[in-house]
Every structure is written in structure tokens, then in C-alpha cells.
Design a protein around this nucleic acid. Structure first.
Lengths: 312, 312
DNA sequence: CTCTCGCCTGCACATTTGTGCAGGCGTTAG
DNA sequence: CTAACGCCTGCACAAATGTGCAGGCGAGAG
């Protein structure tokens, strides 16, 4: 009943199981309260105390913690996907979680930037009771090609703003222009300044991640790229993009000539946003997502379990 | 990831597994710290969190808590006995634990009262490194019959005092006298006053419990009783004694005529001692021990697992 | 649409827990 | 036996946690 180990378990029992206060334990054992505190610390260190969380998908939570650690993220939010879900279902689930997360973190009068992305587009309408806030929603990238007009990024920010009782700013230019002069002209135009200004004062940014070029067929904006752009990107081994900025597996930004024709927030600017959230899933986005995370452009990640596992 | 249950497990995980502070959790979830505190309370209540103490004889500790609750005791200390131990071994183990416990609770200059009892007698010499203190050890009952002189209670207090670097007071009378006049005379004698005075200022008292009369053969003092005493006690259904005071299963004190011839601390006085410890074990002492505990004479119990279980 | 009711939250304060520092006791080497 | 070393403890302060109270928000009735 005396020896070391035994004392530890006794103290641990009284504290954790009986719920006694350290002071009470100290009195029954005729020891100083500090001593009890130290004994408990030892007991925890020596693993005498094991705490289990019932009914929880602990693995998922552990995975979140690991990812957070691995990429130095502020926060990671994972959803569990079951094998019987279609890709469609998984995307919807992720969009729903993204919307919920936005609701969770948004504060009154926040400036919220939204980039292009199939999942971000699906966020709209996922919430039963969106918080009413006076947030300002702004696009982070230019619009799609004329062929995809109905998926215009303006639509997303407009709908989100309406749901959250806020306002939205529109973007009146396609994501990729034909020349850097055209792009510079637009970005320096008076009507563009509101947007440019908003980009500098973002509180929250939600971005997607683009996968490899080969899969570009279903993209809503990549048809704006020229043959030459694509050639160049392939040559430089692009593995994906974020906000229309391409990079390789090492996180190196590619094709300056293309970047100079792109109307979108710069990644360096995105990096300064207090809460910058990447939302993405699927096997083929793993390499680009991994690169993006390594670049420390975003500080928050929302994805699903299978994608998360592939990130290590 | 959102709903109630899920939030609870998440918070519990971050707090208990990851060891984050409530403040940190509140920040990642964008909630108030108080809310996290409340969520954790709920999680504990709903049993989402299960804490196990590794390698511990948890049952023993649980038993202690139950006994404490059941009899309103200040403290309970149990030792585990294995079936391969002889009765002798078990007694020694209990004596050892009693000695250890005394060492644990004793403070400098304490007045420590010791009653008769086979286990109390064995306490002597059980400690490797007794604390040095200036405690005063006093007997709580008179000595044994002449036939058992070598087990005199004075020997115990003397040895204990020596081990703890303190002093001892002796008692110069047998536990039971032949008449109340003789007893009163002794107890009012000048030389007895030091003892009587000590009884009023006890900080700690260790007492044993006597079993039923039928088993009295191995007692060191019950041969002082007369035939008439024994007849009377049996008639009144005595189940045991403490400090030479007999009681029945309801805790009723018996045989006033005998009590008036007894030289021992009164149970009512024992009740006032801040830390009063009963040390006893074995099946045949269960009824008397149970009665004693119900009387709330002592506030601390040291026994073994099997005896403890039988007390319910 | 308006009002009421009740739950939930944040705030501020009380309690509980954690920790650096200084002093005491025991142990060991000489 | 003495002295030096180191572990352990209590103290006092810092950090973290628990909780009553008041205000806000949404659900539901009228």
C-alpha cells in the first residue's frame, strides 16, 4: 500500500475516479497539496492513467492532430467518408463541412475571400441556419471562360453573402487574360480597386486546389489557358494550382509569364490572411495539396480521411 | 463533425488526449472558454470519457471509497491478502500497514493512544525508518492478567515511543478490577492523572476490536472477567468489545456493572479523538467491527480486503 | 409579425492546479 | 563524526478551470 507505484495509483484513483480535489487527497494522505500535484504529473508521464474517449472516431481526431503537426497548420478539419459513398456524395459532404466551418469561424463584418473550386461552389445552400453577419464576400480569382458562365464565381459570393446576411463584391474579368498589359490594365482600373483593397484586408479565405493538368478537362477555367501555357507548365512539371497559380511538387511557382496574365490574389498575399482555408479532396489532388501545404500558404485544411492519410 | 455528440468527443479528445488547454480549444473552435469547460463537464457526465488506472488494484480502492461512504469514515486503508497467506501472515501484513499508516499521519508532539490488540502488539518493529518525532504514547486500557505479563500494553507503548523518538506513559493497573470502588480509587489516584489527562488530549488513537466471547480463549485479558460477567454478557448478546467495553450488534453498550470495574478510555471519549483508528481483521470479528463502525466511535479503518467485503 | 420563454454564451470572480525557489532531512563519502 | 550532496517538501505566486449572473438569440405561441 505504501511503495512508490502504489501511491501513484492511489492518488490517481482518488483524483480521476473519485473526483476528489488535490487538497482533499493531500489531507487524507497527510501530504502537501503540491506533492499531490507532482505525483499526478508523474502518474500521467508514467502512463498509469489511460484515458479513452468512448464512441469517438478517435483515429480521425488523431489524424487531424498529426496533420496539424506535420504542416504546422492552425487547424485541420476532417470528415469521415465511407466506402459506399460516391465521389459525388463525398464532395457534397465536404462542401457541407466547409460551409459549417465557415459558419463556425465567421465573425461580424469579416472580409471573406472565396476562390474557385468545385467544392467551394457546392457550399452554397448547405446550411440550415446560417449565422446572420455583416460579412463581405469577395472573389479571389477571376471568372471562368464564357463557356462556363453559369458557374461564375460571382454567383458563389453573391449566394453566400445573401445566406450570411452580408454583402458581396463582384469580379468583372476572366481569370486569365490574353496579355499582361490587359491584365495590368484591368487590375489598375478604378472599378477594380475595391476588390484589390478587400484582398488586403481579408480575415478569412477559402481556396480550393487544382490537380494535375491531365485532369483539366472538367475544369471551369483552365480552358482559358493557351496551348503554349500548357506546354510550358508540363515542361516545368506543374502538379497543380491554387488560385490559378501553378507550382511544382517542391512548391516552386511556375510560369511567370502566365502569372502576369492572371487575375487572382497572389499566393504571397493569401499567406497573410489570418485564416486561410484549403478545401480539397480526392486522390489526384494529393500531390498538389501536399505541395501547397508545404508552402505554408494556407493555415487550415478541410478534407476527408482518405485524402488526409495520403498526405503523409 | 458538427452535431452535439461529435463536438463533445472532439473537445474531450483535444483536452484529455492532446492535452490542450481549454483556452486553446476554444480558439480553434471559435467558442468561449467557459463553453469548453461546460462541454467537458457534460462529456464527463455522459460518460464519454473513461479513465482507467493501469496496473492498479482498482477494486481495492473502490472498496475503500465504498466503506468510507457507508460508515461515514474519514479514511479507510485496505491491504490485499492472497489466499496463500496464513492467518499469521495476514496479521503481520496488517500490523505492518498499521505501523506505516501511523508513520504517515503522526506529527511532532502528537499524543498517540494505543489500545490492546494482537495486531497492535505486532506493530512494533515493522518499520525500517520510523519518523523521529516527539510524540507521547499512552495506553488506552489497563494491563493484562498476571498470566500474560509479557504482553503488557506498557511494552507496546514503550517500544513504539522508542522507535518514534518519543516518550511513553505507563499504566499500572489491570484492565478489569474486582470492584468499582477499587477501579474508582485507581482512576482517581494522583499517579493516574497524567494518563487521564493524556486521554483528554489525544490526537491519534489506535484500537483493536474484540470478537465474540466464545473465541475468548486466546485473549490476553479476558481471563480477568468473572463467570458472572461472562454470563451477563452472553445474556445481553454481546458480540464483541473495543477497549474492554462490550456492545451488542446494535451498538448498545452492555454490562454497566462491568464497565464500572474497567480501567480503559471510555468510548465516548475515544469518539472525540481527531484521528481514531480501528485495526482489525478476520471473519469472526466482522459483526463486532460492523457494530463499532456503526457507532461512529472511530473515524478510520485499517483492515484487509476479505474483511472489508464482509462488512456490507 | 410580435411577444414570451428558455437555452446558450460571455463576463467576471472564486476555486483549483501548476511551478520556481528556498529550506530541511537523509544519505554517502571521507 | 562531519561535511557535502541531492532529493523532497512547503510556500507563494502564476496559470488554468469552474460557475453565478445577465444579456442575446432562436423557437414557438398567439
Amino acid at each position: 500500500m505504501a511503495s512508490e507505484q502504489n501511491l501513484l495509483t492511489r492518488v490517481a484513483y482518488q483524483y480521476y475516479i473519485l473526483g476528489q480535489t488535490q487538497q482533499e487527497i493531500a489531507e487524507t494522505l497527510n501530504l502537501g497539496r503540491s506533492t499531490i500535484s507532482r505525483l499526478l504529473t508523474r502518474a500521467r508521464q508514467e502512463g498509469i492513467i489511460s484515458i479513452k474517449i468512448a464512441g469517438a472516431d478517435t483515429e480521425l481526431l488523431a489524424l487531424e492532430a498529426q496533420l496539424k503537426e506535420r504542416f504546422g497548420l492552425r487547424n485541420v478539419d476532417l470528415i469521415s467518408t465511407t466506402t459506399d459513398m460516391s465521389e459525388q456524395d463525398k464532395e457534397t459532404a465536404l462542401a457541407h463541412e466547409s460551409a459549417r466551418y465557415l459558419k463556425q469561424i465567421i465573425r461580424p463584418n469579416d472580409h471573406v475571400g472565396i476562390a474557385w473550386g468545385s467544392i467551394l461552389a457546392k457550399m452554397v445552400g448547405q446550411l440550415d441556419h446560417p449565422k446572420t453577419t455583416n460579412a463581405i464576400f469577395v472573389p479571389l480569382v477571376g471568372g471562368p471562360s464564357a463557356a462556363n458562365a453559369e458557374y461564375h464565381v460571382n454567383t458563389i459570393v453573391y449566394d453566400l453573402a445573401r445566406q450570411f446576411g452580408g454583402t458581396s463584391v463582384y469580379i468583372n474579368a476572366a481569370a486569365v487574360q490574353e496579355s499582361r498589359y490587359l491584365r495590368d490594365g484591368i487590375m489598375h482600373a478604378r472599378y477594380f480597386q475595391e476588390l484589390a483593397n478587400a484582398w488586403q484586408h481579408l480575415d478569412i479565405a477559402f481556396v480550393g486546389v487544382g490537380g494535375p493538368l491531365a485532369k483539366a478537362t472538367n475544369s471551369h477555367w483552365r480552358d482559358l489557358l493557351t496551348e503554349a501555357d500548357i506546354m510550358l507548365l508540363k515542361e516545368q512539371k506543374a502538379i497543380g494550382d491554387c488560385c490559378c497559380t501553378f507550382f511544382d511538387q517542391h512548391g516552386k511557382l511556375l510560369a511567370p509569364s502566365l502569372r502576369q496574365r492572371t487575375i487572382a490574389i497572389a499566393l504571397s498575399q493569401l499567406q497573410k490572411v489570418p485564416i486561410s482555408v484549403a478545401v480539397a479532396r480526392s486522390q489526384n489532388k494529393v500531390p498538389s495539396l501536399k505541395a501547397l501545404l508545404s508552402m505554408a500558404i494556407v493555415n487550415t485544411l478541410i478534407t476527408d480521411e482518405e485524402t488526409a492519410r495520403a498526405l503523409f
